Amino acid sequence: MLTRIAMILSIWLAALGIAQAQGAEADSMIFAPSKYLLLDRGLQFRITKSINSMYNFDFPTAERDYAVLAIQYPNHPLPEFLVALGYWWRIEVDVTNKKYDAIFVKYLDRAIAKAEVMFDEDETNKEAAFFLAAGYGFQSRLYSERKSWTKAAWAGRNALKYMDLSRGEEEFNPELLLGDALFNYFSEWIPENYPLMRPVMALFPKGNKELGLQQLEQVANNAFYTRVEAQYFLFRLYASEEKEPFKALQISEYLHGKFPNNPYFHRSYARHLYAVGRWTESVQQSREILDRIDAKLPGYESNSGRYAAFYIAQFNERLGDRAEAKKYYLKTLSFGEESESQESGYYLHSLVQLGKIAMEEKNKTLAKKYFKEVKKYAKRKHPAHQEAREFIKKNKL
């Protein structure tokens, strides 16, 4: 547990990503040249559509454009990094799926290698340092998900080193601020939530959660390359840590509207609608998610299905429609088993509810089976495990 907690900071600190531009300039706009490709406004204008396609899960269109970019800039890390980011979002939809790991790391390695050449030629090159920080940062995130702690720690340290080296160029500030924001937030959040980590965190500069959130908002509003990543972190923090569900909903609603075929943003929007009590709308979005899974649209798979089916089941239970609730709780189980997510809260709660429905239908044998499954998959301190124990005892199952 301590190893995992210790890794949280490096993962989130190193989370420097690429994001899409908001709005396009007029074709007649004359852009001032920049010594850094990242800050070339003309390039930003040209690749906005490509990056938008990537976030909207139209990877073939995005990657065709990135291939052209690679021909134009064969020695620059940007094209490979953008391709890697596309594979990261394929992973993000279901982080338990390892099918994209190798190709994701391959493109990051290529980007890192080109950035290292640039940095070796000129150690004052802030752009090279930026890509090294970003490349190692994403590697750290992946290796942490895979519980490869040594690799994650090594990549995280490198990301932090290059993030520091990339400072000092005022034009880069909106992009680099993401790292500062995450540092400020989590260097205070970790000791608050894990007191045993306080001696370790005392070695780091003091953080400020409120400032971290303000900085994330600033990046989300002003950055070009880290904008969507900042919005992603913001809605997750507002939903889980800050208990600001309406703020989380506002961001996820915007992202789903901007990228309607992104399954992660789609299910997050459905989830946040559900969290604020807009259940009819949540069910509408959830049914659309299930339809897209049936249509085999890119990225729509069992993990998203587990969310969607659960919200529909809960809605029908509130309406008193036991048959429909049962149908969708069973779908939740099916999706959970497909994605090997039996320890997830939605899976466990569905088992509990199916057990209760079985009791209402006078099927004690089936009810006992469901509650035994809860005890099998849930940790003893999990609320579902406790509820299962109490229900079994009370009903003498």
Results as ranks from 00 to 15, higher is better:
2 L>R: 10
5 I>W: 10
8 I>S: 12
9 L>D: 09
13 L>W: 15
18 I>S: 14
23 G>H: 13
25 E>D: 15
36 Y>F: 08
38 L>N: 01
41 R>T: 02
43 L>G: 04
49 K>R: 15
52 N>C: 12
53 S>K: 12
54 M>P: 01
55 Y>H: 13
63 E>H: 08
64 R>E: 06
67 A>H: 09
68 V>M: 11
71 I>A: 14
75 N>A: 10
76 H>D: 03
79 P>M: 09
83 V>L: 04
86 G>E: 02
88 W>P: 08
91 I>R: 10
91 I>V: 12
92 E>N: 15
96 T>D: 09
96 T>N: 13
100 Y>L: 02
100 Y>M: 00
101 D>S: 04
102 A>F: 10
103 I>N: 11
113 A>P: 07
113 A>F: 11
114 K>Y: 06
115 A>D: 04
119 F>N: 14
121 E>Q: 08
123 E>S: 10
132 L>R: 08
134 A>N: 03
136 Y>D: 09
136 Y>P: 01
139 Q>R: 03
142 L>K: 09
143 Y>M: 14
146 R>W: 03
151 K>H: 05
152 A>C: 12
153 A>T: 12
153 A>R: 08
154 W>Q: 15
164 D>T: 08
164 D>E: 06
166 S>G: 12
175 E>G: 09
178 L>H: 06
179 G>L: 01
180 D>E: 13
185 Y>E: 08
189 W>P: 01
194 Y>S: 02
200 V>W: 11
206 K>N: 03
207 G>V: 01
207 G>I: 00
213 L>F: 11
217 E>P: 06
224 F>N: 07
225 Y>L: 14
225 Y>C: 12
228 V>G: 06
232 Y>N: 15
234 L>Y: 05
236 R>L: 07
240 S>N: 11
240 S>R: 02
256 H>N: 15
257 G>I: 03
261 N>D: 13
263 P>L: 13
264 Y>D: 13
269 Y>P: 00
274 Y>P: 00
277 G>A: 01
286 S>F: 04
289 I>N: 02
290 L>N: 05
295 A>C: 00
296 K>I: 04
300 Y>C: 08
302 S>E: 06
302 S>I: 11
303 N>D: 10
304 S>A: 14
304 S>D: 09
305 G>K: 01
310 F>A: 06
320 G>I: 04
322 R>N: 02
342 Q>T: 03
342 Q>N: 09
343 E>R: 13
343 E>K: 11
344 S>R: 14
345 G>F: 11
347 Y>R: 05
348 L>A: 02
348 L>D: 05
354 L>I: 03
356 K>L: 07
362 K>I: 09
373 E>D: 12
376 K>L: 08
376 K>G: 01
376 K>F: 06
377 Y>C: 02
381 K>L: 04
395 N>I: 00
397 L>N: 02
